[in-house]
């Protein structure tokens, strides 16, 4: 008895720390590869799980991209800071000139532009492609307007100008981009909230999906777990393959969601670009972007791992 443990002890300590680290890394690599191989060996059930995870992740990603594209308008409109005053139809040129003069004198107005009723009709015809309809009308229904560029983008400034304009008898109606902007703003913050809420709810869904898949794979490998436990494997060692499986589920599910989103964007890009062309070339259909892609993949991998961990801690108690 005395000889055996001594040689055993020696051979163990003769392994250097570096060798131990290398062996440990090799073990992790093998574990990750093995977990991937096992997913591959059951293509039908793996694909189902991945598809469900991907769809769960696709929803918040899609909403995020929608919000991102809308906020482009928000940003550029904030720069525009325009107020449009629609004039009464019987307004003559002198009144317009007087009004423009009074407005230009105001320190918070940087520029005014007059759009005659004919010009408006021509613009509309070109814009909408409904030139024939406009021609068919006996009378031009579009009013003349003044587009007033403000000196700054503050909401109060716009309000001041609006008050000034509403006292003018020649002005029929004032439209402020700022108001519209405010609505867009609140809509966008609503979208952001919705994205966060969706992320929270659907993260839970991803957690449960992976957790459930890991539960089945634990059940199918019960014999192995029992033997490992009997011959002295630590819980961490036994759990490792399952954690890697969860990690793969998350990562591959995230990648699939990313791919689905990319395909969707590709399908939308044609019509979207045609639409955006009306607004000039300052807008572009935006995708997820690098940072958000990293968040999507990293987050989904972490969720998969966590789902596996929860499942392991719940179902390993039997062994």
């Amino acid at each position: 008895m005395s000889a055996k443990p001594k040689t055993r002890g020696n051979s163990k300590t003769s392994l250097s720390a570096r060798q131990h680290l290398l062996a440990w890394l090799a073990l992790h690599r093998e574990c990750a590869q093995d977990a991937l191989r096992r997913l591959w060996q059951q293509p039908a059930s793996s694909a189902m799980t991945l598809a469900v995870i991907a769809i769960a992740l696709l929803l918040p990603a899609l909403l995020y991209v929608t919000g991102k594209n809308l906020s482009q308008f928000d940003d550029s409109l904030a720069q525009a800071n325009l107020v449009t005053a629609y004039l009464q139809s019987d307004t003559d040129d002198t009144t317009v000139a007087g009004l423009r003069q009074r407005l230009s004198a105001h320190e918070q107005v940087s520029n005014t532009r007059f759009i005659s009723s004919d010009q408006a009709a021509a613009d509309f015809a070109e814009w909408s492609g409904l030139g024939d309809v406009v021609d068919a009308l006996a009378e031009n229904p579009l009013p003349a307007s003044l587009v007033i560029q403000l000196a700054d983008t503050r909401y109060e400034t716009a309000r001041q100008i609006e008050a000034l304009l509403s006292d003018e008898p020649a002005v029929a109606f004032v439209q402020m981009d700022q108001l519209w902007l405010q609505r867009l703003d609140s809509f966008l913050s609503l979208t952001r909230r919705a994205v966060l809420a969706l992320i929270a709810v659907l993260s839970l869904a991803v957690l449960f999906i992976t957790g459930n898949s890991i539960r089945t794979s634990i059940a199918s490998r019960e014999a192995e777990i029992r033997v490992m436990n009997l011959i002295g494997a630590t819980r961490a060692f036994i759990a490792r393959p399952f954690l890697y499986t969860g990690l793969w589920y998350g990562l591959l599910g995230g990648a699939l969601a990313w791919l689905m989103l990319a395909v969707l964007m590709l399908m939308l890009s044609g019509p979207a670009e045609a639409l955006l062309a009306y607004y000039g070339n300052q807008y572009q259909l935006q995708g997820l972007g690098a940072a958000a892609s990293v968040v999507l993949l990293g987050g989904s991998a972490a969720l998969g791992w966590l789902g596996a961990r929860l499942s392991v801690s719940r179902h390993f108690t039997r062994f």
Partner: peptide, 24 residues
């Protein structure tokens, strides 16, 4: 005997050493 039938004889005997993190 509690052998695992999803792997070879070699891998079954390897199991305790794998657990201990032996060099391959």
């Amino acid at each position: 005997h509690q052998l695992l039938f999803d792997r070879s004889v070699f891998d079954n005997v390897m199991l305790p050493l794998q657990i201990e993190g032996y060099d391959k």
